[in-house]
């Protein structure tokens, strides 16, 4: 398409034009390679460091490709304490997602379909809540979780994470429900279905991609979270999540970069996989949410 466009309305010589096109293409590829390296380089370096023998990690001239592949670190990461932290992260993130997506699917649908009094302000609040700095919520939620006796438990962290995943997921899901024509619900109700049935049987299945991406989004926010995890479960090392464990790993006696990279990789891979599965819906959801309001 670009190629065709280039020839519209030009009266310059084709030779000059071909030169210009080659130059422009070369520039494009050069830029593409640079951008690609910037984006993936650090990830490749993480993989390379995680896999190479220690002797090749601590060298002044970096060894880019490991001479032999060391898998042991992953065994240690998955079987040792990190296995425990991984499990904690999984439990906390999945519970957060389950609760917030369930609550948000219902709320998002109501907000998309019903004329609610003060709806405008409610929507502003939900959008605004995503902007709250975590640090503002940290101390009051800490006090709340303490009063509930949930410090040092999964429940405390899940509660804290609901504070930022719920508004986000409500927002994304409302966008998805809005994009589903209301006629579908109406025709189901003409056929005798109750409104709840219409929601459950017609709308929810249609919104599945949206729910999946909202779940992934909520999952990633919870999976990534450091500040609350750092402050809430300090007194119970067995309850640490991966970000906390990784952050602590760095300050330890001798910094074992190979192990840290292996652990980081284990921490990163699930997110990347989820992300690649649903990023299209997610970006759409976010931009839709952001732009269309």
């Amino acid at each position: 398409m670009n190629a065709n466009r280039d020839f519209i309305g030009t009266d310059r010589s084709t030779a000059y034009h071909r030169m210009a096109r080659i130059a422009s293409l070369t520039g494009t590829y050069f830029a593409a390679i640079l951008v690609g390296l910037f984006a993936v380089g650090p990830i490749l370096w993480m993989i390379s460091t995680a896999l190479k023998p220690n002797a090749e990690i601590f060298t002044r001239t970096p060894v880019l490709i490991p001479s032999t592949v060391v898998w042991d670190r992953f065994v240690i990461v998955l079987t040792g304490d990190f296995g425990r932290y991984l499990l904690n992260s999984i439990i906390v993130s999945f519970s957060t997602v389950a609760l917030s997506v369930t609550a948000a699917a219902m709320a998002g649908w109501v907000l998309a379909r019903y004329p609610i009094p003060l709806k405008r302000y409610l929507l502003i609040l939900i959008l605004g809540a995503q902007m709250f700095p975590f640090v503002v919520l940290l101390i009051p939620i800490f006090i709340l979780v303490r009063q509930l006796g949930l410090i040092g438990t999964y429940g405390g962290l899940v509660l804290a994470y609901l504070s930022f995943t719920t508004p986000l997921v409500v927002w994304i899901l409302r966008g998805f429900f809005l994009s589903i024509p209301i006629e579908l619900e109406e025709s189901a109700m003409v056929d005798g279905a109750t409104r709840v049935q219409a929601f459950r049987k017609i709308i929810l299945p249609m919104a599945l991609p949206g729910i999946a991406s909202a779940s992934v989004f909520g999952f990633i926010s919870a999976w990534n979270e450091l500040l609350f995890a750092l402050s809430f479960n300090r007194n119970n090392p067995s309850m640490h999540t991966l970000p906390v464990a990784l952050q602590q790993f760095i300050g330890r006696e001798t910094t074992d970069w190979g192990m840290i990279m292996a652990a980081s990789l284990v921490f990163t891979i699930p997110v990347v996989v989820f992300f690649l599965l649903t990023h299209k819906h997610m970006t759409k959801g976010m931009v839709m949410g952001a732009v269309k309001g």
Binding site: I43, W223, N224, L242, F275
Partner: peptide, 16 residues
Amino acid sequence: LVILPWAVPRVAAAIV
């Protein structure tokens, strides 16, 4: 490829 850095957890990104 460009999306990948977005997917990397913040702590892991900072570490690498």
